[in-house]
């Protein structure tokens, strides 16, 4: 049985990942390759940020170590060193091929994480995670469709392949330091899907998580949301 504070820690990893990946994607709204894609990324971004808010609220109920009034405290008042974002999410990019691979990897890992967390939580948290899982399926399918479309041309294939090599170690290390540490399920399912689409996958199994080592982009994101809220009374992220 997992302890409440250990569970709160795992949920915090998830909420931080969701907040950052959603916020980075929101910044891409308007920067997608065509108008329909901009609708899609805005929608995914909104959903991820909404998930972060709900999970932060769940943590408030679970762990008395966090004393903020609402989810906003996690974003606006928490010491920056308290953000536990994974390296996979922390690396911001505006390159479209990189975004596809980063998000596809993240959604695959996130799907596994949610399915495992559902097994160990109870009550409302379990129900919330269950409902998030059915929404996340849309996200996963979206990035998988992009991979498949990109694999249709030589140039698309080359660019995606390059990004697969780049993000692979970050996916491989995604679960390091979490209670899901030794799992290979995500890894195997991603490998299988990529192979089916004709992509090569590296043999690296170790990788690194980089969780809590914040990139400048994440620090900037935190600062920017705080500046926004300070300048705008009653503002929300």
């Amino acid at each position: 049985m997992i302890q409440a504070n250990q569970l709160a820690k795992e949920l915090l990893y998830m909420a931080d990942d969701e907040w950052v990946i959603g916020s980075f994607l929101a910044e891409m709204s308007g920067g997608g390759p065509f108008v329909e894609e901009n609708v899609a990324i805005s929608s995914i971004a909104q959903d991820e940020i909404g998930h972060a808010e709900i999970i932060y609220n769940e943590i408030l109920d679970l762990d008395s170590a966090f004393q903020w009034e609402s989810a906003d405290g996690f974003v606006h008042q928490r010491p920056v060193s308290g953000f536990k974002v994974s390296a996979l999410v922390s690396a911001k990019t505006i390159d479209w091929a990189a975004i596809i691979v980063q998000h596809y990897f993240y959604e695959a890992a996130d799907q596994y994480r949610v399915s495992q967390l559902i097994e160990v939580v109870e009550g409302r948290t379990k129900n919330v995670l269950g409902q998030m899982a059915r929404e996340e399926r849309y996200h996963h399918r979206h990035w998988h469709t992009w991979l498949s479309k990109m694999s249709a041309t030589l140039e698309g294939k080359r660019r995606i392949q390059e990004e697969i090599y780049h993000y692979w170690p970050k996916l491989a290390g995604f679960f390091h330091g979490t209670f899901l540490a030794d799992d290979q399920t995500t890894f195997q399912s991603v490998k299988k899907e990529l192979t089916t689409l004709g992509f090569a996958t590296p043999e690296i199994k170790e990788g690194f998580s980089g969780r809590g080592v914040l990139s400048d982009d994440v620090k900037l994101l935190i600062t920017r949301s705080r500046v926004l809220v300070e300048g705008m009374s009653g503002g929300k992220w």
Binding site: E36, V39, A40, S43, Q46, E135, Y138, R141
Partner: peptide, 13 residues
């Protein structure tokens, strides 16, 4: 189906 996502979370185009 033009888009599996839409102007609000619950809709598609």
């Amino acid at each position: 189906r033009e888009n599996e996502f839409g102007p609000t979370l619950c809709k598609m185009i």
